[in-house]
Simulated assay, not measured.
Amino acid sequence: MSLILLTGGAGYIGSHTAIVLQQAGFDVIALDNLCNSSAESLLRVAQITGKAVPLINADIRDEAALRQVFAEYPISAVVHFAGLKAVGESTQLPLKYYDFNVAGTVTLCRVMADAGVKQLVFSSSATVYGAAAEVPITEASPRSATNPYGQSKLMVEYILQDLAAADPSWRITLLRYFNPVGAHPSGLIGEDPNGMPNNLMPFISQVAVGKRPHLSVFGSDYDTVDGTGVRDYIHVMDLARGHLQALKYLQQHSGIEAVNLGTGQGYSVLQMVEAFVQENQVPVPYQLSPRRSGDVALCYADPTKAAALLGWRAEHSLADMVRDAWRWQQQNPDGYHSV
């Protein structure tokens, strides 16, 4: 039985991935400093799967704590979610983002190498493509970044590529997420942002549940179907399954591969709002606002490589995404603080 370490395992994507891995027969442990997550998420994972997820409350920048974890547990692979992820905050606090996301990953990899654990799935992002000139975006599309968050993900990709080149025994997958949304269909776990949401779906959900007066739609004059920005939204359970497939792939293949995880279908902000309203029969008032700097009109994936390499395709519909997001929000109006 393989034991998988999930860094940032109490977070949104980490907790959903814990469910998928446990249901596939893996044992998992989570390491999380809980700076933007809740230990409650893992208690609920145990409710869903019937299997506890041990939580180590530690920071990936704490080398001594990491060394103790690898000494205590027979870890065979790491899925690395831990990091900061707010684009706006990253422009205000770039050093904090480079410290957590870049320096933290370097520390993790050094400890992994010393422990002889060289299988790594890295939580990357479509932000590494910057303002892509063409869509759909393939893994061969040029990389750049328009903010420190994206830059930190891109830096880590370069570091891991150099690591794999220097030591061919490493097995690394870079998973470039597009826009994760939704929640586990039980409604027990979901996206629980601190303060003002940075992502569209929790914002829509919080307006629908009455926590916020209206949704601000940034930019209504893009060259898109209705003038609002178009993104590739992917159900978090599909995304979690992508990590399972990546781990299975690493068991058979060395080297490093980058893989897009998206549906290949773009939806505009207003299409997402309309889908939410129609599926859940709840109003979502919104206001059109000026564009935000750094936002692009169109961003969606070419998921061909994920199908070919990992045998993975997104299976959940847009209706599934908005329905599951609303179930989580209704059952947990204040997120994990609802308990």
Rank of each mutant, 00 (worst) to 15 (best):
T228E: 02
L160H: 01
S152A: 12
V128E: 00
Y129M: 12
D226V: 15
E191T: 04
T173N: 01
Y222R: 12
K153T: 07
D221P: 05
D162C: 12
E257F: 06
D221G: 07
G227F: 12
L250W: 03
D232I: 15
T127N: 05
N199W: 13
G195Q: 08
G219W: 10
N199C: 12
I204V: 11
I204F: 03
D192Q: 08
V128Q: 00
A131K: 08
E157P: 03
P136D: 01
E191A: 06
Y233N: 05
Y158S: 07
L239I: 13
I256C: 05
S141P: 02
Y149S: 09
Y222M: 14
I172M: 05
G150K: 08
S216M: 13
E257Q: 07
H253R: 13
V217A: 04
A126E: 02
A133C: 03
G242Q: 02
G150E: 01
Q206L: 15
V181F: 10
I172D: 00
T146H: 03
S123G: 05
I189K: 04
P185T: 09
I234M: 06
V209N: 02
G116L: 13
P168L: 12
F218L: 11
K211E: 07
T224K: 04
V217Q: 03
R171W: 07
H243G: 07
Y177E: 01
V207F: 08
E139N: 07
T127S: 12
A183P: 05
H235A: 13
N194P: 05
V117G: 00
Q206P: 03
R212A: 14
